[in-house]
Design a protein around this nucleic acid. Structure first.
Lengths: 258, 258
DNA sequence: GGCTGTATGTTCGATATCGAACATACAGGC
DNA sequence: GCCTGTATGTTCGATATCGAACATACAGCC
């Protein structure tokens, strides 16, 4: 069962793309939507709507992280890059979450990199404001910490999945995780990029995707993947997907799971 | 450079093993030692010293977690167990940390299991008290969150390591992580158990350990491993060990890094 | 000092993924 | 409608780890 998404892409916003922050847009992010009214009102003028183009780096491994981001229609990938250039995604963040948790966790930075995996929009909040707001209200603290725990589960499960499951299964997991964070059924994503995220060879992804296409579950061509049979993917995926999904549903506020 | 440990095992406590909680013992855990004086005094009578024998399960995947634990001389392994019985360690906690973070993160439980990997002692604090104390003082909140971020780094790096590094390198990483959390240079641990933690075959560990022994870095026999050349291990280990080490030193309070 | 259980060692073929090199084929600009 | 770059497909042998079966060897108990 997919996380339902508001039926709205980056479009549907009339000529009013001025500096006025649209409440409707802000509520696309489910953490922001879950804020108590008081906080929501206070945050609103501080939130900057920004474009997140494919490949854009929100923060780099060792750099001081200056802001946090609340994706609305974009998907952000958190990945670790090693000295030799090898990389692996450790978690993915969509409109259910926030990018830059180390800011309120107290570390300011983390050794990971945050990259836009699927283009879209999101809101930015300045570091100083975020820190202050985190401590100011218990509900904000608890909301963000519950989200962080969900994220921890995703990371841990990724570790286990990397150890024990086949590339094919991990590809299904990755497709489903992305699908849950998108409005439609089309992913704009080359196999090369997927390989980078999963930390495997591009050829491996080609083989895996080819099997899925032959089975009629997906259809792809030149950087566009259409999911035709979501249930089919769920049938092939390893248990890791469900474990993470259940934890997200359990930990995130009611209105968010809907 | 190893994390220095107080030179004290489970021994060194005179006939006074009554219900009186020893301040010296409590301070063996570096999070507890870093508490502000006020909190330390308040917590002291609530902390129960307990034995943590090898293999003891502190909490199970789905069970409600009733307490948190501050290891002093014991080492706890956080592992995920899959339906088919395969498992993998996602992080290890020693006297620098706390077991049961999901309690104050707001989830109460996590889909992981906590097992004693190296016998020793630790302090237990009741769930209700922990929750209240977490919210009561900003310094406690921040101390525990900084530790949590360090833990997150360890998990993420484990995920990457599982993906990209050889069994031999991971074995070195595992030995060093354990060594950092022990007083001496001897690990009481069969190769079978190490295999379980790493999520690999026992034979693989035998081969890896055999190489290390032939190289003169360790010596082992029937469940006891002696590290003879720590620097040699550090020379063979992958970068993952250092990344985690640096983050722990950076994030944990001064007196802890010492 | 022999018995027994657990820990470690060794071997086999099977499999998944890798690394590299190269073939095809589509999309968009001109 | 052709050219070119990027995306995808295919093949090769090399390697690491697996799964299973079996051999050895030490420790502690009687």
């Amino acid at each position: 069962m997919p996380i339902k998404q508001p039926n709205k892409k980056s479009g549907a916003k009339p000529p009013s793309q001025k500096s006025v922050t649209s409440i409707t847009d802000v509520k696309l992010n489910r953490l922001l939507a879950a804020l108590p009214a008081t906080e929501f009102k206070r945050w609103l003028p501080k939130l900057e709507l920004i474009d997140l183009p494919l490949g854009h780096v929100l923060y780099e491994s060792s750099a001081t992280e200056m802001n946090v981001y609340f994706p609305t229609t974009a998907i952000i990938s958190l990945l670790y890059v090693m000295k030799n250039g090898d990389s692996a995604e450790i978690a993915v963040v969509g409109n259910e979450g926030i990018v830059g948790i180390s800011l309120f966790m107290g570390g300011d930075t983390t050794p990971s990199r945050a990259v836009v995996q699927s283009a879209g929009k999101g809101f930015r909040l300045k570091a100083a404001i975020m820190k202050k707001e985190f401590d100011r209200s218990g509900s904000v603290t608890h909301l963000l910490l519950r989200y962080t725990q969900a994220l921890i589960t995703q990371m841990a499960q990724t570790a286990v999945c990397n150890r024990h499951h086949s590339l094919d299964q991990q590809l299904c997991r990755w497709l489903l995780l992305s699908l849950d964070r998108l409005a439609g059924t089309e992913l704009v994503m080359t196999q090369e990029l997927i390989a980078n995220m999963l930390g495997v060879r591009r050829e491996g992804v080609t083989e895996g995707a080819s099997k899925l296409q032959k089975a009629g579950l997906i259809r792809y061509s030149r950087g566009r993947i259409n999911v035709l049979d979501r249930a089919g993917l769920e049938h092939r995926v390893c248990e890791c997907y469900a474990v993470v999904k259940v934890e997200y549903d359990r930990l995130l506020p009611e209105q968010m799971a809907a």
